[in-house]
């Protein structure tokens, strides 16, 4: 599954456009950024409700393929700005984290 396929299949909204498409190798769900720092793996997409610019920093440092902010959490402007600067795709979905993970499992097979 690629990021573009994820966006279409999961019906989530990109907070900025123009990112480069890439392979999504899996997913990681957590709201403790230190946990994401310690345990997420390169290429995974992060499902979280931590919608702030520090989440983008974690995605950069761990080379994650993107961020999905669940439960329709509002994404602040400075997070969008940082995501654009760092070229990290960020999506918003109405689904909660469990539903998002479950759907990703169904669609992406991971």
């Amino acid at each position: 599954m690629t990021i573009k396929e994820l966006q279409t299949d999961m019906n989530c909204r990109a907070v900025w456009n123009g990112w480069e498409d890439r392979e999504v190798t899996g997913a990681y769900t957590s709201d403790l950024l230190s946990d994401v720092m310690a345990r997420s793996e390169e290429g995974q997409v992060l499902i979280t409700i931590q919608a702030h610019k520090n989440t983008v920093a974690v995605a950069v440092l761990k080379d994650l393929s993107g961020i999905i902010t669940a439960s329709n959490r509002p994404v602040p402007d400075d997070m969008i700005e940082t995501a654009r600067d760092e070229e990290i795709p960020v999506f918003v979905t109405d689904n909660n984290q469990y539903e998002t993970g479950w759907r990703l499992h169904e669609l992406g097979g991971f």
């Binding site: 230190s34 720092m37 310690a38 950069v60 440092l61 760092e86």
Partner: peptide
């Protein structure tokens, strides 16, 4: 602190 070495480029 639970942390790996990191690339300081970002921060």
């Amino acid at each position: 602190l639970e942390s790996e070495p990191f690339d300081p480029g970002f921060f």
